[in-house]
């Protein structure tokens, strides 16, 4: 019983992290049709900035995290304007290559400034504690992660479903030429969405540092993890990304607890079988 609860809590928390990092990737793929392999780099950059602020400037966890996210967004904006804008029109392969090149540059930058060691993001005393639920105790960090994840999902749903920006975004995803023709500034939508995705990735990177430790090779190491969420969820679908992230988080955590020896093999085998049966993912509109 306690094993099942452990799997549930860890799996859901892990899934929330995967969702926060991958949702931006899914939307940029659905909206701009760009395969952005450098997306994990934004999660790393958020973590690195937060690490530097905490270890060298003595800033607290929450302000450091917020500043890390802000710094990532501040970097994503010019990057989208100057580089990604040109990549949109490329073929699949050219996109893959250009974004691998960017990934290499991000890795090299972090490697140069911070070295290739693990960059710790120590949790503040309060977060590292456990909470007593009466029948058992749980690490508070996991609960905070789940709480933030739920808040992000509700926030995104409100943004997409209830605001004018959301309507325009959905219009641009469905058909960007028509959306542009009726006077929607798609260029601005692209930039804003890209930055939102990068910011959420930074949030996920910082909160998830316990599970996916921040280091220079982070974007390459976990790239497949994030791509899997997008492919399984279906490109351009928020609900798909969420369901996929949660499901994959649970499957991976469960296979780690139950068959630790063959966890990774089992996990990838599941994904290959699933995608062979449904090449477009759960709710994918684009293949």
């Amino acid at each position: 019983m306690s094993l099942i609860l452990n799997i549930l809590i860890d799996g859901v928390a892990y899934g929330m992290i995967l969702f926060m990092i991958s949702v931006g990737l899914s939307v940029t793929m659905g909206l701009m049709r760009v395969i952005n392999l450098a997306h994990g780099g934004f999660a790393m950059l958020g973590g690195v900035v937060a690490h530097v602020l905490m270890s060298e400037a003595g800033v607290g966890y929450v302000p450091a995290a917020l500043l890390g996210i802000a710094a990532t967004v501040a970097l994503a904006w010019p990057l989208e304007r100057l580089i990604y804008r040109r990549i949109y029109g490329f073929g699949d392969l050219q996109q893959v290559l250009a974004t691998i090149g960017l990934t290499f540059l991000m890795i090299a930058t972090v490697n140069r400034l911070q070295g290739s060691t693990l960059l710790a993001l120590p949790l503040p005393g309060g977060l590292a504690q456990s909470v007593d639920l009466g029948f058992r105790t749980l690490p508070l960090h996991r609960i905070v992660v789940i709480g933030v994840g739920v808040a992000v999902i509700i926030g995104l749903w409100l943004l997409i479903d209830r605001t004018r920006f959301g309507i325009r975004l959905r219009a641009a995803v469905d058909n960007r030429a028509t959306a542009g023709a009726i006077g929607i500034n798609t260029g601005l939508i692209y930039s804003a969405t890209f930055c939102l995705g990068a910011g959420l990735a930074a949030l996920g990177g910082i909160l998830g540092a316990e599970m996916l430790p921040i280091e220079a090779y982070y974007p390459l190491r976990y790239m497949v993890l994030f791509l899997v969420v997008v492919a399984v969820g279906g490109m351009g679908s928020f609900a798909g990304s969420f369901a996929a992230a949660l499901g994959l988080g649970l499957i991976e955590t469960a296979s780690r607890y139950l068959v630790p020896e063959y966890g990774t093999i089992f996990y990838f085998a599941c994904i290959i079988v699933f995608l062979a049966v449904r090449p477009k993912g759960l709710w994918g509109r684009l293949a």
């Binding site: 791509l227 997008v230 492919a231 090449p279 293949a287």
Partner: peptide, 10 residues
């Protein structure tokens, strides 16, 4: 059986 991103990822 797949193409595009799914293929690359697989």
């Amino acid at each position: 059986r797949t193409k595009g991103l799914t293929l690359i990822m697989l």
